[in-house]
Amino acid sequence: MSEVLVLVDHVDGAVKKPTYELLTIAKRLGEPSAVFIGAAAQGAEVAEKVKAYGAEKVYVVDDASIKGYLVAPKAEALQQLAQQVSPAAILITSGAEGKEVAARLAIKLESGLITDAVDVADDATTTQSVFAGNYTVQAKVTKGTPIITVKPNSAAPQEAPGAGVVEEFGATVSEGAKTAQIVASQPRQATGRPELTEAAIVVSGGRGVGSEESFAVIEALADSLGAAVGASRAAVDAGWRPHSYQIGQTGKTVSPQLYMANGISGAIQHRAGMQTSKTIVAVNKDEEAPIFELVDFGVVGDLHTVLPALTEQVTQRK
């Protein structure tokens, strides 16, 4: 069986959940191999984690000469590895960086690229949700090594022990790939809440929340449910929450089990980021708000009274 390369999605060696989802998908296509581009010293630790989800091999690419630059060196490393192992497919998480790595890799390997897949079948046919979720597209790569970026929450990670054999891979990074330099980097503060794109429940607030202080109402509900907190662009533009909270066309795409839109009207650009959520709930004081066209359950009312009461009931039922 051919290897399927999965680029490990991690922050400083802490493996993120979408990696396990990709390994689960990789098993359908061949033999999963994880590729960890990071500090070589963390290789063994990462291998322990990914082997539980089926990684037969774990390629460790030390990032000492890679990490200070934008995506080009990562694409070079993957290219060299792909040329050595001739994988059946390459799977990468669909984030901004993952997509750019994939883009460069597609040109280097003369291979077709599919982005933002929400499912991948055993024959590598992908499913994409497009046009703000109004269409479902089935597509296939027809040339080269299929390079597919997959959105978080596209598969339930399945534990299935693999051999997890660690192999150091020495990539040669060209000077030409080191031309966009990361001059400064300020890690985002941890909120203690689940990550937006990975969370099972997302509670969002929009312009209807009314102020930065009032976002506490949204956060209290989110915390009672163990949920992540999101925001519409209107709430972000008003400065109530940073851009990293934004859900929609120019923010994050989420596909949780439960999405709760509070004080959000449901503009097409917002829908683009949440329409594939399994269950959708809205609280809005305007019964004509378009968000109600999407919901499984909606409450016409003032979020400032409905949400605190709901939070109390959720807490009581625990």
Binding site: T136, A139, K140
Partner: peptide, 13 residues
């Protein structure tokens, strides 16, 4: 290098 096999309008929720 990619081929669209099928497109379907999502049924309205």
């Amino acid at each position: 290098w990619t081929e669209v096999v099928d497109t379907t309008a999502r049924p309205p929720r």
